[in-house]
Computed example of a mutant assay.
Amino acid sequence: MRIDVDWDRCEGHGLCAEQAPEVFSLDDDGELEYAYQDSDIPDNVASGVKSAIGACPVAALREHT
């Protein structure tokens, strides 16, 4: 599983980081950090990532197809 992040759309709400803290976090400036930018997301955190996609209020995350 891979995620596409629309960096222009992200507003740093942090709901993704609440749902999948192993994958998403916010830096000190409130900017999104995505731990698996260039690799597959491990299966053991995939359900949290799917929750993060649904929780994003600006739809900045989507599963890569």
Rank of each mutant, 00 (worst) to 15 (best):
M1H: 11
M1A: 14
M1F: 09
R2N: 14
R2A: 14
R2D: 09
R2Y: 10
R2E: 15
R2K: 15
D4C: 13
D4T: 10
D4Q: 15
V5H: 02
D6F: 07
D6M: 12
D6W: 10
D6G: 12
W7R: 14
W7I: 08
W7V: 11
W7P: 03
D8C: 05
D8F: 09
D8Y: 05
R9T: 14
E11P: 01
G12R: 01
G12M: 02
H13I: 01
G14N: 02
G14M: 00
G14K: 00
L15R: 13
L15F: 12
C16K: 03
C16H: 04
A17V: 04
A17K: 03
E18G: 06
Q19P: 01
A20K: 01
A20V: 01
P21R: 05
P21M: 02
E22L: 08
E22R: 07
V23F: 05
F24D: 00
S25D: 02
S25W: 00
L26V: 06
L26Y: 05
D27W: 04
D28H: 07
D29C: 11
G30Y: 03
G30P: 07
G30K: 05
E31G: 02
E31K: 11
L32H: 04
L32N: 05
L32M: 14
L32E: 04
L32P: 02
L32G: 07
L32I: 08
L32T: 04
E33L: 11
E33G: 03
E33Q: 15
E33W: 02
Y34N: 01
Y34K: 03
Y34F: 15
Y34A: 05
A35W: 01
A35C: 06
Q37G: 11
Q37W: 12
S39W: 07
S39C: 09
D40M: 08
D40G: 07
D40R: 11
D40Q: 13
P42W: 10
D43S: 13
D43Y: 09
N44K: 13
N44T: 13
V45Q: 06
V45T: 09
A46L: 13
G48F: 01
G48Q: 07
G48H: 06
G48N: 06
K50L: 11
K50D: 05
K50S: 10
S51W: 00
S51C: 10
A52M: 08
A52R: 06
I53Q: 05
I53H: 02
G54E: 13
G54D: 14
G54S: 14
A55W: 02
A55G: 14
C56S: 10
C56H: 07
C56A: 12
P57E: 11
P57R: 11
V58D: 07
V58C: 06
A59H: 14
A59V: 09
A60Q: 01
L61H: 11
R62D: 09
R62F: 09
E63C: 04
H64Q: 14
H64I: 00
T65M: 12
T65V: 13
